[in-house]
Amino acid sequence: MAVCVAVIGKDNSPLYIGGVGNDTSTDNELSRQWLVHTALDALEERLATSNSNTTNSNTNNTRTDLRDLYLGLLYSTDTHKIYGYVTNTRIKLVLVTSSTSPSGSNIRDAEVRTALRRLHALYADAICNPFHLPGDQITSSKFDKQVKNLMLNNV
């Protein structure tokens, strides 16, 4: 099951980090941040390579430049798997699943993909708020609720 969802800005600053867990102590929150933070390297690298690939091959498929927003598994630890997703505006969505929990051990890639897509939609809804400044932290409680809901039910 998903334990953490993070929205990261294009300058790699955290916009939103939400997690579900047994406890909401700061320790837990911190460890989630570590997880997501260390995933950024792999995410950026993947982004760079996919970009260079597209630039190399954009002669033949300029029209079909739509790269897959879903980046797949970024890395995994003993306990967690970290998936990445990058929007076209370079907003990074990171989903962390727990591989220790019974449901999370054999999570399917497609599930993660749909979850991240839904998260993308939620994010888009959240920043539709005219009072939201792009680049600011997302403080919307509705977004938070929806994301928590997504984590519990969808994945």
Binding site: H37, T38, L40, D41, A42, E45
Partner: peptide
Amino acid sequence: LYKEIGFLRKAAF
């Protein structure tokens, strides 16, 4: 090694 490949965050971790 992480540093060498530019994964500074990983390295830091």
